[in-house]
């Protein structure tokens, strides 16, 4: 995703696929995440993505609560998922 993305206009969680792949060996964009705040279940790719190449904040597509925060720094990578009750990684075809 782009470093200059306007922080007021989110992209889709799918745009954070590359960044998430730096920590996760499987594709997270098609994984379902359950929002702690409202219980909505949605694919990571469907959530609202604020941020850029160095970090992303994913907000629930329904209630806008933060479900995942990830920041990459030269020193390392920071992941916070307090807003995610669980993550379901489905089997994929093909």
């Amino acid at each position: 995703m782009s470093e200059h993305a306007d922080t007021n206009a989110p992209l889709d969680g799918n745009s954070a696929a590359g960044l998430l792949h730096e920590l996760f060996a499987v594709d997270l964009t098609s994984a379902n995440v359950t929002c702690v705040g409202c219980g909505t279940v949605a694919e990571i790719g469907r959530e609202r993505a604020y941020g850029g190449a160095m970090g992303v904040v994913l907000r629930c597509v329904h209630c806008e609560a933060v479900v995942l925060r990830m920041v990459r720094t030269p020193a390392g990578c920071w992941l916070e998922m307090l807003g995610a009750r669980n993550l379901f990684v489905p089997a994929v075809e093909g």
Partner: peptide, 14 residues
């Protein structure tokens, strides 16, 4: 470049 990424926005004939 790195990829392919983003399995969410995908359609195959299957």
């Amino acid at each position: 470049l790195r990829g392919p990424i983003g399995g969410y926005f995908v359609w195959t004939v299957a």
